[in-house]
């Protein structure tokens, strides 16, 4: 494969949230949702992001579309920073990166019809002029995502979850973005509907050469759609690998444990389960050392005091943040 063009570059991205104490006069605490994320996203790829609840997957996605303002770091879209741009340029940026939200039930305005919701991005960005042309374009989009003319004047509550997510997809692609952040787009749907929506997303990706950042906690979904996979734990990236490698050759102890938690596909299959001891540490407050240090079965003295960096390991494009592989 030829050298891939980097479309979005994330440099040293951190996001802290201030948490107010519950009691009167108690100190404010800092929650580190994301810490020093470095990531290159290539044009036309599907980048899967997985990790358990609260590891910062969604925060990462929301930082990329500008819903959260990062505490530190840079996000470059085709070399241009998307942070702190002026209002006019911001609209241009919005056009490039769109987002599909996790919850199809709350991400559509209950008082807007399907046609209103789908046409809104085009109205804001003034890509389509005239009522007839707009109607035509909305219909075109609805058909593309498997809906039809009779759905145009319906309200969100009249749709099923899958249909609503299709509407969200239509909304996202309506202004021809280069990149779509999918924040757990199927986790609120039935399994059968999940497959439909995922296949729709894949079809659209091929058609428009879209770049996806596909956030999910479902390993099988991520494996199915992704070209590359990012594994996150407690606000940090612990491993980046190519889609297939994660099953063949997981390197980070956390990834190994995560994979061992997938139920076996066949009941007769014997599977060794790696169970991490203890709870996920709280992301509140300062910590030194590897985030997994307290739970890792192969923890060393060094892990407790020093933060491992993402380093190239083995095959092309396989990066891991673990001291186990640094000595060699």
């Amino acid at each position: 494969m030829s050298e891939k063009r980097v479309i979005l570059q994330v440099k040293g991205l951190s996001k802290d949230f201030q948490i107010k104490g519950k009691k009167l006069g108690s100190k404010k605490a800092v929650l580190h949702a994301l810490q020093e994320i470095d990531l290159d996203i290539h044009e036309g790829e599907v980048l899967g992001v997985i990790g358990e609840s609260g590891c910062g997957k969604s925060t990462l996605g929301r930082c990329l579309v500008g819903l959260h303002k990062p505490t530190e770091g840079e996000i470059l879209f085709e070399g241009k920073s998307i942070l702190g741009v002026r209002a006019k340029d911001k609209l241009e940026m919005c056009r490039n990166i769109q987002m599909i939200f996790q919850d199809p039930y709350s991400s559509l305005d209950p008082r807007h019809t399907a046609a209103d919701s789908v046409s809104e991005p085009m109205v804001v960005h003034k890509t389509v002029k005239g009522r007839a042309a707009m109607e035509q374009r909305v219909l075109e989009l609805l058909k593309q995502v498997g809906l039809d003319v009779q759905h145009m004047n319906r309200y969100p509550h009249e749709f099923s979850g899958g249909q609503r997510q299709r509407l969200n997809v239509a909304r996202a692609i309506s202004i021809n973005p280069r990149m779509i952040i999918c924040d757990e787009p199927v986790s609120a749907l039935d399994v059968s509907i999940q497959a439909q929506v995922i296949n729709l997303l894949k079809k659209l990706q091929k058609e428009y050469n879209l770049t996806y950042v596909f956030i999910s906690h479902d390993l099988s979904v991520v494996k199915y759609v992704s070209d590359r996979i990012v594994i996150m734990y407690l606000g940090r990236i612990v491993e980046i690998c190519n889609g297939g490698d994660i099953y063949k050759n997981p390197l980070h102890p956390y990834t190994q444990a995560l994979l061992s938690a997938i139920p076996p596909e066949c009941p007769d299959e014997e599977k060794e389960r790696i169970v991490l001891q203890g709870e996920v540490p709280s992301p509140i407050g300062e910590r030194k050392g590897c985030p997994l240090a307290g739970r890792c079965p192969q923890c060393m003295e060094r892990c407790k005091n020093e933060m491992p960096r993402l380093k190239q390991q083995g095959e092309e494009g396989h990066q891991v943040a673990c001291f186990l592989y640094e000595k060699k």
């Binding site: 579309v65 500008g66 819903l67 911001k90 609209l91 940026m93 919005c94 056009r95 769109q98 987002m99 939200f101 919850d103 709350s106 991400s107 559509l108 305005d109 209950p110 809104e120 991005p121 804001v124 960005h125 969200n168 909304r171 202004i175």
Partner: peptide, 10 residues
């Protein structure tokens, strides 16, 4: 969330 969805559109 639909307000966030609006913000994403700009």
């Amino acid at each position: 969330e639909y307000c966030n969805a609006g913000r994403v559109i700009g």
